[in-house]
């Protein structure tokens, strides 16, 4: 049996900064197998983003356990988390968070270099990823010169530069028009087919339709966790009912 890429045990997050403590995540048990593409859905405020941020160590858990690639991660210090992230976790956000005064090339190579890859390996991966994303001719541009869709593709390339065990995404198409969404969908679909494990928070049903498993949160709890069937009828008429 393969080991889980990611596992949580009774994971809890309480924000206690305000007048009343907010129970954002209430006891989530989750096992993610290698190669799974999971869509995390649910209404605003249901704890989706908090959950995914905790999985990547960007938000500290209140109680419970997080295991990444078979190693306990929730007890790590902030700097140890940062090291773990560089090696194992790729992140994509709604806003692309590219480094504004660096070129596309440097944005994509930086995490690989920080993760300990040699300059040659970092360059090869960057060339491969930008090629796959049709961004080769934008390599010397700065983020401000790119469209939103291009910036998000660069952000994806950066997230994948370290060949992470898991790609975490928080509304990656939330700020894109439909054409750019389509480009990002194509890419997610492709890396998933190549075996990339993906956990993605999304409101966009088109994006969620690519996943093979859906987790639905309500008030910080998982209310549904199941596989999305692939019917693949092959005939358009069975999909679109034109009266």
């Amino acid at each position: 049996m393969t080991h889980a890429v990611l596992k949580t045990v009774n994971l809890v997050k309480v924000y206690s900064g305000g007048a009343v403590p907010v129970h954002a995540v209430r006891g989530v048990d989750l096992v993610v197998e290698p190669g799974e593409f999971i869509a995390v859905m649910g209404p605003s405020g249901s704890g989706k983003s908090t959950l995914v941020h905790m999985l990547g160590g960007l938000d500290a858990r209140t109680s419970g356990e997080i295991w990444v690639d078979g190693k306990r991660a929730d007890t790590l210090s902030e700097s140890a988390w940062a090291l773990l992230r560089r090696k194992k976790i790729g992140f994509v956000f709604q806003f692309f968070n590219l480094v504004a005064n660096m070129t596309v090339t440097d944005n994509v190579e930086l995490p690989a270099l920080l993760g300990g890859a040699s300059p040659r390996v970092a360059r090869e991966r960057r060339e491969h990823l930008l090629g796959a994303l049709n961004l080769t001719d934008r390599a010397d541009a700065s983020p401000a010169q790119l469209s939103g869709g291009e910036q998000q593709r660069v952000a994806l390339a950066r997230a994948l530069a370290n060949e992470p065990s898991v790609l975490l995404a928080d509304e990656p198409t939330g700020n894109l028009d439909s054409r750019n969404t389509r480009d990002v969908l194509r890419l997610l679909s492709k890396v998933h087919k190549d075996g990339q494990t993906i956990i993605m928070v999304t409101h966009d049903a088109r994006v969620a339709g690519l996943a093979d498993r859906v987790i639905c949160l309500l008030d910080g709890e998982i209310v549904d966790d199941g596989r999305i069937a692939r019917r693949r009828t092959g005939t358009a008429g069975a999909v679109i009912d034109l009266r």
Binding site: L210, I228, R231, T233
Partner: peptide, 15 residues
């Protein structure tokens, strides 16, 4: 929950 999975499966077909 069952209906959501069904809709997402239809969406997969449309994709």
């Amino acid at each position: 929950n069952r209906q959501r999975r069904h809709y997402l499966s239809l969406m997969g077909d449309l994709n």
